[in-house]
Computed example of a mutant assay.
Amino acid sequence: MTAAPPPPPRDSDAPDAEPRHKRERRKDARPGELLDAALDLFVEKGFAATRVEEVASRAGVSKGTLFLYFPSKVDLFKAVVREAITGRFDEWTAELEHFPGDTADLVRECMLRWWERIGNTRASGITKLVMSEAGSFPEIATFYTQEVVEPGNVLIRRILERGVRRGELRDIDLDNACHSIVAPMIFLTMWKHSLGPCCAVQHLLDPETFIRAQADILTHGLLKPDARKPTP
């Protein structure tokens, strides 16, 4: 009697088979993996030098798969910025609305939280990238201005308007006051991605100490004399 043929292998018996639910989870994770890989490479190499093939390879997918999610390198960069930075503004705005302290405390806290959530992360390299390559890629410079610079200035302006409204700040040029608060954070970003990694100068600057000093200088220069108080 001829032996019955063996049953077809189950998915778990086939070396290259993958359960459907696992494949679906993998597909859902791909955009995040691509964005993570792209952020690493943009910060390491810059926009011009980063190739989409490298991003796909680092994420473990084909270039064709990458283009299913992001039609171009510019679209990929925009998605990275939205994921790493722009998505934080709603959170920061909500925190502003419920902050219990005075304006000096709020300015300092805003700067410290920026350092914790952006400046001290890989995302801070995006700022250096844009400043370095804006002239060659005006589209990404315009996008960064609209998605990061302008919302950031709006948020800082609201902080300062709150201080004026509460009688803690004198009547000031709010636009330039916003630049004064942003400038130390840009300095920290450029330091971190240039001189900061050098052993010979690492000890010259502690970011949180620098931020507290800058916040103290800025707010005590803006406060009315009768509203001044020591900064903890």
Rank of each mutant, 00 (worst) to 15 (best):
F70A: 06
L155D: 03
W191R: 12
R26W: 07
G101C: 10
M190H: 12
A4K: 14
P8N: 06
G163H: 06
M131S: 13
G119N: 11
R58G: 09
I211A: 04
P225R: 02
Y69N: 15
D13I: 00
S180Q: 14
V52G: 13
T86G: 00
A17P: 10
A183P: 04
S72Q: 04
P71F: 01
I126S: 02
F42I: 04
K192D: 02
A200N: 07
A49P: 00
S12P: 04
E24R: 14
R162P: 01
L174Q: 11
E168S: 03
E109N: 11
T2F: 12
T219P: 00
P207N: 03
E18W: 04
A14I: 13
G60Q: 12
S62A: 13
D171Q: 15
I172H: 00
R122N: 03
P232S: 05
S57I: 03
E54T: 09
L35V: 12
F143K: 03
W115M: 07
R58C: 03
E139K: 13
V201S: 05
I140G: 01
T2M: 12
L169G: 03
L35I: 13
G64N: 14
V107G: 01
L39E: 09
Q214H: 04
P100I: 03
L35G: 05
E24F: 01
H179S: 13
Q146V: 00
T50C: 08
A227L: 00
T93S: 12
K229V: 03
P184K: 09
T142V: 12
E116M: 10
L66A: 11
S124P: 03
D102Y: 07
P7H: 11
Q146R: 14
T93A: 14
A215M: 11
R165E: 15
W191Q: 06
I156P: 02
I181F: 04
A213T: 13
G32L: 10
G163Y: 02
T142Y: 10
C178Q: 06
L68K: 13
W114M: 07
L112N: 14
T189K: 00
V61Y: 01
E91A: 14
P19I: 06
F77E: 02
P9T: 10
E109K: 02
E150D: 11
P230I: 04
R58H: 11
N153G: 13
D216P: 00
D16T: 13
I172A: 11
G101M: 08
A183F: 07
D40A: 15
I186T: 10
P232T: 06
V74E: 15
V61G: 05
I126M: 04
A17N: 13
S136L: 14
R26N: 14
V182T: 09
